[in-house]
Write a protein that binds this DNA or RNA. Structure first.
Length: 575
DNA sequence: ATAGGGTTAG
């Protein structure tokens, strides 16, 4: 995470905020205050603008109480930009105002602005209060902005909030969200008084990162649990493979709610138990958008897009309000279904629901068109996105790559660089895949080199697999072999498998023997590797060697699985 | 300040 902004940590001097209220303005106060009752949730932003204009004219824009009310009203309309506009005209904002602005951005985004506001507050040497920290820290967690979080941590210590349970809990949660479990635990251990929330935050942190042992230990040690603690625990268990225990906890917890059931639906879904997920779903009386979406996703996750789409229709019939996450699940289902006649229907829902400006939806749409085979339409949707992010570019690059379009892939990569969007490891999977597919050896080498030179991308096995495939197919077996031997991460059987395949293509028996030996060690139970080597011996009429491999196979009790042809199910029309 | 559903690759 690049540093968003330098948060000044100088803690002195603290100037008390002063309100410079013009005398004339204070005289007019009673005339203007009647406007205050207009500032409620339903006030439109035009109306707020009018009120603000009047305040400016009357010189009341420095009136602490009124401005606070105005900004609060703007914030509930969810328009942070307008709120900042008003805020920026306040000479000496009070603590409540600073908190409001930070909280506003931490809720509606852009999240970065919340930290910017925190930094601005510190630049003005305003002393944060215990309400400022949690919202600023929460935002650091959302953005995974560890370095900013640490700077706020310094402020917390300098300014004497080490014994504030709220602040400390927010701090430990920030470390949890930034994947710093050890630091989170240190903060937790240092707390003299801990609330249920503090305990739950650390338990949930361990759960989220799959450290179930630590989580369970604390779970059993904690003096009191609430339903959130239980839910965090069953989610951890269900998420990381111990569905049985999760189920046991689920059945023995003092009370359950909608969240508990949704967690279990997710657990069953990941275990492939669609029937039990549906059973739980059907038994729920109060189903809202999250529950419906969980069940729809369950079908998507388990390869039943038809059922997912059917359930979505039921959801509409049940008059449940669809949100952007339901739409993402639905688009996923349609993409899996792969039929282009769903696309128009989907696009209608997107515009009806007002999701047309949500970049996540638009990105999913690119993938939908790619999966339906209309790469041109995918590009149309891609082009229409005003501020394309990495995922937009990746979706399109991957789309071209899976269609084997090297020109499309590589020109889009250049476009991405030109637009100053940083490629990530997924981008390079796409680029290298297409190079391997199209036999573009030199280009592949160059892009691979570029990826390493960029420095911020940790090469993964997938990248090496692409390169081995690319070099191997082109006959550069030695180079491919050396790449595997020198790669900084553990090669997977499939990495060696790619090389073995290349040896077969080029009839290089010597290297095939070396590679096969490696594979026999790694996955002695996989019959495919023996088969390739046996076939290579047979092709060279080396019958003795072939028989030797077969015998070894028998001794290892490896049997070649007979070929199975799976009938393609006719799903029929779905709508 | 703590819990549930989602988009890009493989």
């Amino acid at each position: 995470m690049p540093q968003l902004i330098a948060v000044p940590t100088s803690a002195t001097p603290f100037s008390k905020p002063k309100i410079h209220l013009p005398i004339e303005a204070s005289k007019q106060t009673c005339q203007i205050y009647p406007y205050a009752h207009l500032l409620n949730r339903s006030t439109s932003s035009d109306h707020l603008n009018q009120i603000h204009a009047q305040m400016l004219v009357s010189g009341l824009h420095q009136d602490d109480l009124l401005i606070t009310k105005l900004i609060t009203s703007i914030i509930v309309t969810g328009e942070p930009e307008l709120a900042s506009l008003v805020f920026n005209q306040v000479e000496c904002p009070n603590g409540f105002l600073w908190t409001s602005m930070i909280r506003c951005y931490s809720r509606y985004g852009p999240f970065k602005e919340a930290i910017v506001f925190y930094a601005r507050m510190r630049c003005q040497s305003f002393r944060p209060n215990n309400f400022n920290f949690p919202f600023a820290l929460k935002t650091c967690g959302v953005l995974k902005a560890l370095s900013e979080g640490k700077q706020i941590h310094t402020d917390v210590m300098k300014l004497g909030f080490v014994s504030d349970v709220f602040v400390q809990t927010a701090l430990l949660d920030m470390y949890v969200k930034c994947r710093r479990l050890k630091t989170a635990k240190q903060v937790f251990d240092s707390m003299k008084t801990k609330s249920v929330v503090s305990w739950t935050a650390i338990v949930a942190g361990y759960c989220r990162h799959g450290l179930l042992k630590q989580a369970q230990e604390l779970f059993h040690d904690m003096p009191a649990k609430n339903i959130i603690t239980w839910n965090a625990m069953i989610d951890g268990l269900a998420r990381f493979g111990d569905l049985g225990t999760a189920r046991w906890y689920f059945n023995s917890m003092p009370q359950i709610n909608r969240v508990s059931r949704t967690i279990m639906i997710g657990g069953y879904s990941r275990a492939g138990d669609v029937a039990n997920a549906r059973l739980l779903f059907d038994r729920m009386t109060e189903k809202e958008v999250v529950e419906w979406t969980a069940m729809i996703s369950c079908y998507v996750e388990n390869g039943e897009p038809g059922e997912a789409i059917k359930l979505f229709r039921e959801m509409l019939a049940a008059d449940v309000k669809v949100d952007e996450i339901t739409m993402l699940a639905l688009i996923s289902a349609a993409a899996q279904f792969g039929s282009s006649h769903l696309c128009v229907w989907i696009e209608n829902h997107i515009s009806e629901g007002g999701f047309g400006s949500d970049i996540r939806i638009l990105n999913a749409l690119i993938n939908l068109y790619v999966q339906c085979g209309s790469i041109e339409k995918a590009f149309d949707s891609f082009e229409k996105i005003p501020n394309k992010d990495v995922i937009s570019y990746n979706s399109m690059i991957t789309g071209y790559a899976t269609h084997g379009d090297a020109d499309g892939t590589l020109s889009l990569f250049s476009m991405m660089i030109g637009a100053n969007v940083q490629p990530n490891s997924i981008t390079f999977v796409g680029v290298l895949t297409v190079c391997a597919h199209r036999g573009l050896v030199d280009k592949g080498r160059r892009y691979f080199r570029l990826m390493l030179d960029l420095g911020y991308i940790k090469p993964k096995v997938e990248h090496y697999a692409c390169m081995v495939d690319l070099l191997g197919r082109a006959g550069h077996l030695e180079e491919a072999h050396n790449l595997i031997l020198n790669m900084p991460i553990r090669p997977e059987p499939s990495t060696w498998g790619a090389l073995l395949g290349a040896c077969r293509i080029h009839g290089n028996l010597g290297m095939a023997e070396v590679v096969a030996r490696k594979l026999f060690e790694m996955e002695p139970e996989n019959p495919g590797n023996y088969a390739i080597l046996t076939n290579m011996y047979s092709e060279k009429r080396m019958w003795d060697a072939a028989i030797k491999v077969r015998t070894a196979m028998k001794e290892m009790r490896v049997f070649k699985t007979p070929g199975i042809s799976i009938a393609v199910e006719d799903v029929g029309p779905c709508c």
